[in-house]
Structures are given as structure tokens and as C-alpha cells.
């Protein structure tokens, strides 16, 4: 069975249709890339799945439970974790405290949360930053910290919003490594990404949005040779 089943989701803001009749699925342990030109509605769709916007119509099933229209905190409890385009780390806290706060969804005990946080920091190669204030870390480190924080709620699916944007090639590689490690944990990832060199080699499936509609859905190879995708990215000839 599919872990995440998005079916016929539309999202309208007044007269503006950001997503129209979008359907796709994510299997357990899959890495699925969500790509498309600017304004294609990727982030809106993402926000619908994470509970930040209720969809205007359609259903979003997570493991048999309809999560469409639930609040962000209820989605998090149901097993959806997310990151943001800007890392949104808790700036008054250390790296460890950031992750601890998330781990407290699983355990109310501060010492258990600390132990869990140290494991997730190590997972994201940030263990030596544990006592550093989050605000003093670089953008790349803060993004990975946000990933560690999201993982600490022990999600079934992780939504990553442009984790690789603006990173240099070695930082992109670090981010890719973390995403692959997440798959090894059996956690699915849905990744909104502009950096196609980062996402194409690792994705099991790519979904392409254009002007709010899904125009392609398949393996990275199928999608990159799709004439509709090429015209969406390069414009009509």
C-alpha cells in the first residue's frame, strides 16, 4: 500500500488556483522529487500535505488516515515532518536544544529527549555543534539542523523544502548524503527542489508541476525526456 496518497487535490486562493486536481503517491522508503518552474504550486502543495493550508478539495491519505485539513501539529503527530525554505531554527537555543524540543513529542522527559537529540545530530553530522547556538551556524549547517529536528519527531514521511538551494557543490553532496541516510531508515522523503543535479540522481520518482497541474510523473529518466516537461522548463519552441 502507498504510504502517502494525494488524490485530486486542488487549492484555490480566492480566484487564484495554485493547485488543480493533483494526484500522486509516495511509497514507503521512497525518495520523491517535486519539481517545476517558479510559481508552479510546489510549495502550496507541500503546505497542503503538511497541514499549513487546508486543500480546497481532494484527499490526502497517510497510511489510510485522511490528513487533509488537519492542523500542522496534528499532521506532525500523524507522522508528517517538514523543513522550511529558510531553516527556521530556534535561534535562542543551541543545536542540541533545537532537536530536543522536537524529540519532546515522543518523550516528555528532558534527559531522554537529550539522548535522542544527540543521536539525530550525529545522524546529520552535526554532533560537534551540539552546544553551539543555532544562530551562529552557517546556512548549510542550519538546514541540516532543521532536518535533524524534523527527524526527531520520528516521522513516517519527511517533506524537504529546497534543502539544497544556494549551497555550494560540497554542501549539496552533504545534503544528498543525509537524504540517502534517511531512506536507509525506512522514512520516505518528498523533496521540493530547484537543484536538479542534486535530486535527479537520488530520486525514485519525480513529479513535475506546471501552473498548478501535474504534467509528468515517473522515473527521473522518463521525466527528463518528456516533451511537456522540456517545454515547461524551456518555454514553447
Amino acid at each position: 500500500m502507498n504510504l502517502l496518497d494525494v488524490s485530486h487535490v486542488s487549492k484555490r486562493f480566492g480566484g487564484l488556483t495554485a493547485n488543480e486536481d493533483v494526484s500522486f503517491t509516495v511509497d514507503k522508503g521512497q525518495i520523491v522529487g517535486l519539481i517545476g518552474p517558479n510559481g508552479a504550486g510546489k510549495t502550496t502543495l507541500f503546505n497542503c500535505v503538511a497541514g499549513y493550508f487546508p486543500p480546497s478539495s481532494g484527499t490526502i491519505m497517510l497510511d489510510g488516515q485522511n490528513i487533509a485539513g488537519l492542523s500542522p501539529e496534528a499532521c506532525a503527530r500523524a507522522g508528517v515532518a517538514r523543513t522550511f525554505q529558510i531553516a527556521r531554527t530556534f535561534s535562542s537555543m543551541t543545536a542540541c536544544e533545537n532537536v530536543m524540543t522536537a524529540a519532546m513529542l515522543i518523550t516528555r522527559s528532558v534527559s531522554h529527549a537529550r539522548a535522542s537529540a544527540m543521536r539525530w545530530l550525529a545522524f546529520a553530522n552535526l554532533e560537534h555543534f551540539a552546544d553551539k547556538p543555532a544562530a551562529s551556524m552557517t546556512i548549510s549547517e542550519q538546514r541540516r539542523l532543521a532536518v535533524a529536528r524534523a527527524l526527531a519527531i520520528q516521522p513516517r514521511i519527511l517533506l524537504l523544502d529546497e534543502v539544497m538551494a544556494g549551497l555550494n557543490p560540497s554542501e549539496v553532496k552533504q545534503a544528498v548524503d543525509v537524504v540517502l541516510k534517511i531512506r536507509d531508515q525506512g522514512i520516505s522523503s518528498l523533496i521540493v527542489e530547484h537543484v536538479l543535479e542534486g535530486i535527479m540522481p537520488i530520486a525514485d520518482k519525480i513529479i513535475v508541476l506546471d501552473r498548478g497541474r501535474k504534467i509528468a510523473d515517473g522515473t527521473p529518466r522518463q521525466v527528463s525526456s518528456d516533451p511537456q516537461v522540456i517545454s515547461a522548463y524551456l518555454g514553447d519552441a
Binding site: 499549513y52 500542522p72 501539529e73 527556521r88 530556534f90 537555543m93 524540543t101 513529542l105 528532558v110 524534523a150
Partner: peptide, 26 residues
């Protein structure tokens, strides 16, 4: 300050949207 409530309150102060994403009913 030392319990999970203290951590949640600071999270709400710093980044309310991110706090919701980790299951905090702000």
C-alpha cells in the same frame, strides 16, 4: 524553564511555524 513546557514556550517565541511543524499545539 527546565521541563518540556519551557522548551515549547521558547520554540513558540522563536519560530511559531516551526514549532507547529514538530507537533507543538501553540
Amino acid at each position: 524553564e527546565r521541563s518540556y513546557i519551557g522548551y515549547y514556550l521558547r520554540a513558540i517565541k522563536d519560530e511559531p511555524d516551526a514549532a507547529r511543524s514538530i507537533g507543538v499545539n501553540i
